[in-house]
Design a binder for these strands. Sequence first.
DNA 1: ATCGACCGATGGCAAAATGCAAGCAGTTTT
DNA 2: AAAACTGCTTGCATTTTGCCATCGGTCGAT
Lengths: 168, 168
Amino acid sequence: MDESHRSGCPINLTLEILGDRWSLIVIRDIMFGSRRHFRELLQNSQEGIASNILADRLRRLLDKGLLTRSDDPTHKQKAIYSLTEMAIDLVPLFAHMGAWGRKHLPVSEELSIRAELLEDGGPALWEDFMDELRAKHLGKQLPPGTPSVLGRLTEAYLDVVAAKKKSA
Amino acid sequence: MDESHRSGCPINLTLEILGDRWSLIVIRDIMFGSRRHFRELLQNSQEGIASNILADRLRRLLDKGLLTRSDDPTHKQKAIYSLTEMAIDLVPLFAHMGAWGRKHLPVSEELSIRAELLEDGGPALWEDFMDELRAKHLGKQLPPGTPSVLGRLTEAYLDVVAAKKKSA
DNA sequence: ATCGACCGATGGCAAAATGCAAGCAGTTTT
DNA sequence: AAAACTGCTTGCATTTTGCCATCGGTCGAT
């Protein structure tokens, strides 16, 4: 469990866990795409992750404490992956990464609308979203009638997709 | 120059550039460690980067527009690596990564004091630091008498190191 | 002018990670 | 009984990483 580290620098230790091409993609899909099962993560992957890589990353993220795995009561073979507080704490990081990508890289419009909303919403919105994730993944209670941040993000995304389709 | 991308998602595109174990380490050392030459990056590396990996990452970061390379007038073989605005824009990301690492990972005290100060300083301090980096790497003017953020971070770091040494 | 230290890298090679396609045993649906 | 779906695993080729030695050129001191 306790491997040797290259250094005790916070940046380095973070990179030792998240510094590869797939780990954050997997967490992103669970977090923003609400994918909770292996097949969902595999088949709906925008980037086309391979099944062995996905299996490996899920295992590593479980091991590092970013995910938990539980049985799906509706299907004996289904596993449900959930985010831990550690992973939910990555929301601000995702927001900043999205903002940086939008500013400096050739992002596509429909895939960056959510990043834009998250960026514009700022820390207050991030907190709301994190509470929503805690409710969904950790079973925490949410005040009744709370509007869904993810719902808003998804709605905006679908609007852009629909608009693009129409104009095409 | 223009490679094919896995997707146009901002998170993904960011990972395609920074999603490995070394790229952000190199930028960190240039940014916070004021290392501007190949040898400095190689020999003062906390994590022990190999020379071929360093050469490769510098090349890639130049190619992607995060660094620039210029000749050192004092030595015909010396190269000076500078951050671009694109890289300076990563300061908030570093701040968040540092904060996340400090919260969730077994960081060492002396290597995380700077992350702590950066975190506590918040966006206002980050902006000051970014202006300082623009002065150092892009030749921008800074109001005279501006106190150095990096100086403060380094001082705090050295204090902790000295205190540790004394207690040991 | 000559020597040793220093400069930014390269090259060879083994080990590890990645990527792709096929397949597996068990479960559920039709 | 058949087909579709479940979370993976296996085999294999390619790519990346990591370690170590080394290179041709430059510099300062003697």
